[in-house]
Design a protein around this nucleic acid. Sequence first.
DNA 1: CTCCTTTTTAGTACGCTGTGCGATAACCGT
DNA 2: ACGGTTATCGCACAGCGTACTAAAAAGGAG
Lengths: 200, 200
Amino acid sequence: MPKIVDRDERRAELAEALWRVVCRDGVAAATVRSVAAEAGWSPGALRHYFATQTELLAFAMEHVIARATERLTARTWTGSIREVVQQLLEELLPLDRQRTREAEVWLILAARTRTDPETGTLMREADDGVRRACASAVGALAGEGLVAPGREPDLETARLHALLDGLTLHALLHPDLMPPERVRALLADHLDGLRHERKP
Amino acid sequence: MPKIVDRDERRAELAEALWRVVCRDGVAAATVRSVAAEAGWSPGALRHYFATQTELLAFAMEHVIARATERLTARTWTGSIREVVQQLLEELLPLDRQRTREAEVWLILAARTRTDPETGTLMREADDGVRRACASAVGALAGEGLVAPGREPDLETARLHALLDGLTLHALLHPDLMPPERVRALLADHLDGLRHERKP
DNA sequence: CTCCTTTTTAGTACGCTGTGCGATAACCGT
DNA sequence: ACGGTTATCGCACAGCGTACTAAAAAGGAG
């Protein structure tokens, strides 16, 4: 009957073209037409696999999530718990060009979230992933006695998450004021600070 | 000779129309045409006062900066230093509708910064203002003995700034997870934490 | 092998955006 | 009154996302 193509494979092929455009010209240049041209198809054809611009950006963001998840699971963790937590959280920060591009996509979608509800659910998933990573980090440190007993894990998780996103933003917007080494130092300083008790 | 109009007054008039649109429909709806229509002029006329979209958004951002500065200077500060610092920093967070709209403009411009260099300089000014406020906060607390002697003021300023921007982002994107009370609580918790020493 | 049905692709069109340009209108000083 | 400068307008253009229709392709039925 119909012409049959592997839909997922096509989407993967388009995703490659999409990410080529993002890496070369930035996420702002990732329009329906430019991605179609990069993949060698017409814009109308691309619309069969990504009906809207939101779906295209959502796919890019899912790509970012998949990459981050892959980095976190595939990596072999060595050293003390404290060192592993630092390394794990650093994987979520824009410390090299690749992750900077990924953070760009994240920022673009964050700005769209306020007007585009569909984007909101995806960003929610992505942020939940980071939040879980923060919770794991706090939990792991607490298990090693590296978090003072008086601290609320929920609060510390939320604070760590806010710090991470703030650092991401500053590393993106003002790389001169917030170079990778400084981001790492601030994260290390924050994690060290969790050890200390809070008295009245 | 020529027809003379008060250029600044016109820009202020347009700024009012601009901000009316932003408050009613969000910053995404603040297009050249919609603002011109709101002000009762043609798009071409608006272009004599704001040559580009960037200038329009920049004016909106300057408006945000002016509002924030005004809030910080006009307010009468009461209570202890610790309380004043909390109140001051809360003025910079999106804790009500007005400041949420302002934060929206900030976020839109942040996303543009990566591709639009002109936007970059303006965002730099805005962020410098927040950074100065953070430095003042840390300095004021240190003057009261509310910052442990072992802490580096630069590091604490940068950390506070990152936390503030992270909280702003989370309050904007996930108001259900980060309602105003929680933002306040996290800020208070962070400021309290500065008191404690860091031992090896 | 032929035709038919369904999917895939191409192309076009519409309304929106920012932006550039030329024509028109309004005004002030001589 | 008039000339020259400025303000204002309206249109045109390219680019965007998106909807829609027509053509092409391909596998199964006869």
